[in-house]
């Protein structure tokens, strides 16, 4: 049923996107140090880590919002620079930012098509509105009208709009920074379902999430960031949540494991879906 052009079935070994040794500092804070990341076509990579681990910074480097201080990015086999967001969009990297980056004074349609309006000199309002409804229905969005300003929408509705926006155009990689954080049950299921479909179409998906259930539901690989460094890479199917949590917190002794130990032996003792952050790894080093 999907009418979206299929990305040609790629050899699973060639990475669509790879980052090597990417480093980013803000003043005295090393937000990212020597990060490596590979995303293949038709693969969902989850990035997890504590608050302040550098996930959003990594996403912004991919989106062209931040320039890395060191390191290389290779896209489709050739080294690339992503000097600004339009370069990223041009490459085929669509991003849903954690703060959504929507214009509150503009309507839903205006936001969806911002920067890639149909017929720039004589906007095709009708065409854009129809396309907007199609996209939103695909995500089971509960939005009464697309002519309403973003300011009038709830947090989850806004998030749906931001996700819908990333599907426009013809992206090769979709980067989602906590896409389901504000979504309801049905909408979360719809987004996870969407991620599955994007993978089937051969797109690369990078998903940042704190929700282990979501991650394990759709991800192929899990990459753990800790204090701005790679801290482990797991196969999402075989790994246990405890291992991931341990890599996230950098310790095998933390609230989650202690609790598991306490209830050890009793019924099913899978750790909670949400990762509990520890204080020591939350670094708030904004210097500037």
């Amino acid at each position: 049923m999907d009418t979206m052009p299929q990305v040609s079935p790629t050899n699973r070994k060639t990475a669509l996107l790879s980052m090597r040794g990417v480093t980013k500092t803000f003043g005295a804070v090393n937000a990212l140090t020597d990060i490596d990341l590979d995303v293949e076509a038709g693969e969902v990579v989850a990035i997890v880590g504590d608050n302040g681990a550098g996930k959003s910074t990594l996403v912004k480097v991919l989106a062209g919002v931040h320039q890395p201080d060191a390191g290389t990015i290779t896209f489709d086999g050739s080294p690339v620079q992503i000097p600004d967001p339009s370069a990223a969009i041009h490459l085929g990297v669509a991003t849903v930012f954690q703060d959504l980056a929507l214009c509150e004074n503009l309507s839903v349609v205006d936001n969806l098509f911002l920067g890639r309006e149909i017929s720039p000199m004589r906007l095709d309002e009708t065409g854009m509105e129809v396309k907007a409804w199609e996209l939103l229905q695909q995500l089971s969005a509960r939005i009464p009208t697309v002519r309403i300003a973003i300011a009038s929408l709830s947090g989850g509705q806004r998030q749906t709009v931001a996700i819908a926006r990333s599907l426009l155009g013809d992206p090769k990689i979709i980067v989602l920074d906590e896409p389901t954080a504000a979504l309801g049950v049905a909408q979360t299921a719809e987004v996870l379902d969407l991620i599955e479909r994007l993978r089937e179409r051969g797109l690369g998906v990078v998903m940042v999430s704190h929700n282990m259930e979501d991650v394990r539901a759709v991800a192929d690989r899990i990459i753990v960031l800790r204090l701005g460094r790679n801290n482990g890479e797991f196969d999402a199917v075989s790994v246990t949540s405890e291992d991931v949590v341990a890599a996230i917190t950098g310790a095998t002794d933390n609230v989650v494991t202690r609790r598991r130990d306490r209830v050890a032996g009793s019924r099913e003792d899978a750790p909670a879906g949400h990762v509990v952050p520890t204080e020591e790894s939350t670094d708030k080093g904004e210097v500037r």
Binding site: A63, V65, D84, P85, S86, I89, H90, T95, F97, A101, L102, C103, E104, N105, L106, D110, L114, G115, R116, E117, P120, M121, R122, L123
Partner: peptide, 25 residues
């Protein structure tokens, strides 16, 4: 009201960072 340029004016006035991240120059 009817061109991409005008839409971009409104977007920049509403939220510069969002406009920039949408690929607007």
């Amino acid at each position: 009201t009817r061109t991409k340029w005008g839409r971009s004016l409104l977007a920049v006035g509403g939220n510069v960072e969002a406009a920039r991240r949408s690929g607007i120059n």
